[in-house]
Amino acid sequence: GSVVKEKKEKALIEVRPYVEYYNELKALVSKISSSVNDLEEAIVVLREEEKKASEPFKTDIRILLDFLES
């Protein structure tokens, strides 16, 4: 629970300088966080969101995924 939350919060802070739609990304992460149990599940849902998103938000999600998977 809290470790996953920390990882996601740290990821958002780390990617902030590189993303165009930070507030939207943060809102998406919050929405996903409330419906998943762990980081792996969150990553799966983020990948689905990435497929549906259009640029440049798609790239923002990709940047976040790269950080979460590192």
Rank of each mutant, 00 (worst) to 15 (best):
L39Q: 04
K52P: 00
I61Y: 01
T59G: 09
S33R: 04
E24N: 04
P17W: 07
F67G: 01
I43A: 03
V4K: 04
I61A: 00
S35Y: 14
K31L: 08
E24C: 08
K7M: 15
E40A: 09
S54V: 09
I32A: 03
K51M: 10
N37Y: 14
A42V: 14
I13R: 12
L39A: 05
E49S: 04
V3E: 11
L46D: 00
D60T: 05
K5C: 15
L12Y: 02
E41S: 09
A11G: 03
E24V: 08
E40K: 08
P17Q: 08
E48W: 14
F67I: 05
Y21F: 11
L25A: 01
I13P: 01
D66G: 12
L39C: 15
A53D: 00
E40N: 09
K10E: 08
V3N: 12
F57I: 01
D60R: 04
Y22V: 02
K10T: 07
T59L: 13
A53K: 03
L46Q: 00
V4S: 09
V36T: 11
E6I: 11
D66F: 15
I13V: 07
L28H: 00
V29G: 01
K52E: 07
V15G: 02
D38F: 07
L25Q: 00
P17M: 05
E69Y: 12
A27D: 08
E69I: 09
L65N: 02
L46F: 05
D60Q: 03
V15N: 02
S34I: 07
S30K: 06
S2D: 11
R47A: 06
K10N: 07
A27K: 05
E24F: 10
R62W: 07
K5L: 13
S34R: 08
Y21R: 08
R62H: 12
V19A: 02
I43S: 02
N37K: 08
P17C: 14
K8F: 15
L46W: 03
D38I: 08
L25M: 01
L28F: 04
V36E: 05
V3Q: 09
K58D: 01
I32W: 05
R47S: 06
L65K: 03
G1K: 07
D38E: 07
E48C: 14
K8E: 13
L28G: 00
L39E: 11
V19H: 02
I32E: 02
S30P: 01
K31S: 08
I43T: 04
E49D: 02
E20C: 15
L28T: 01
S33D: 08
Y18P: 07
R16G: 12
V44A: 10
E20Y: 15
A42R: 02
S54A: 10
E41K: 05
K26F: 14
V36Y: 05
R47Y: 10
S30D: 15
K58C: 03
E14S: 12
E55R: 09
D66W: 15
R16D: 09
K10S: 07
E6L: 04
L68P: 00
K7I: 15
E48T: 11
S2L: 07
S30Y: 15
N23S: 07
Y18N: 11
E20W: 14
V44D: 08
R16Q: 12
L68R: 01
V19K: 01
K52W: 08
E41N: 05
Y21D: 11
F57E: 01
Y22H: 02
A53T: 08
S33G: 05
G1L: 02
L68N: 00
T59C: 12
K52Y: 09
I63V: 06
R62K: 08
A42T: 13
I63L: 06
L39W: 13
E14L: 09
S34F: 10
K5P: 05
I13K: 12
P56V: 04
K10P: 03
E69T: 11
E24P: 00
E50I: 07
A27I: 08
S54N: 06
E49T: 05
V15P: 01
Y18A: 08
L64C: 02
V4I: 11
L68A: 02
G1T: 11
S2H: 08
K5F: 11
L28W: 05
T59I: 06
I32T: 03
I43V: 07
T59H: 13
S33I: 11
K52V: 07
F67P: 00
E50S: 10
A27P: 00
E50T: 05
E69R: 14
D60K: 03
K51H: 10
E49L: 03
E50R: 12
K5Y: 07
K31N: 06
E20N: 13
I63K: 04
S33C: 14
S70F: 13
K10W: 14
S35W: 15
E48G: 11
K52R: 10
K5H: 13
N23A: 13
P56N: 03
E14H: 13
K10G: 04
E41C: 05
F57Q: 01
K58F: 01
E14Y: 12
E55Y: 13
V15A: 06
L46A: 01
A11I: 09
S54Y: 08
V44E: 09
K31W: 13
E20A: 15
V3M: 09
E40L: 07
L25F: 02
K31C: 04
I32L: 04
E69Q: 12
F67C: 04
I13F: 06
I63S: 02
P17H: 06
R62Q: 07
L25D: 00
I63H: 03
A27Y: 07
L46G: 01
V44Q: 10
V44G: 10
L65H: 01
T59K: 14
K58Y: 01
V3H: 10
E48F: 14
K5V: 11
E48Y: 13
S34M: 12
L39N: 04
S33Q: 05
S70P: 10
L68E: 00
D38C: 07
E49P: 00
E69W: 13
T59N: 13
K31Y: 12
V4W: 15
K26S: 11
V29Q: 01
A53W: 06
Y22G: 02
E69P: 03
D66S: 14
S33H: 05
E9P: 04
S35E: 12
V45M: 14
E20D: 03
K26A: 13
V29I: 06
A42I: 14
P56L: 04
T59S: 12
A53V: 05
K7Q: 12
I63R: 03
K31A: 09
E6Y: 03
Y22S: 04
S70Y: 14
R47C: 06
E40M: 09
D60P: 04
V15Q: 01
K26H: 07
V44T: 10
Y21V: 02
K10C: 14
F57M: 02
Y22A: 02
K31M: 07
E9V: 06
K10H: 10
N23R: 07
K8G: 15
V29L: 10
Y18R: 13
K26L: 13
G1S: 12
S2F: 02
Y21W: 06
V45C: 12
I43F: 11
E49V: 05
I43K: 05
Y22N: 03
K7S: 08
L25K: 00
L12W: 03
E41H: 07
K8Y: 15
V45T: 06
K52H: 07
L39Y: 08
V44S: 11
K5G: 09
K58A: 09
K7T: 12
K26R: 09
F57H: 01
F67W: 09
L25W: 03
L46V: 01
I63Y: 08
K51E: 10
E14Q: 09
E14I: 09
I63Q: 03
V3D: 12
V4R: 04
E41V: 05
A42C: 14
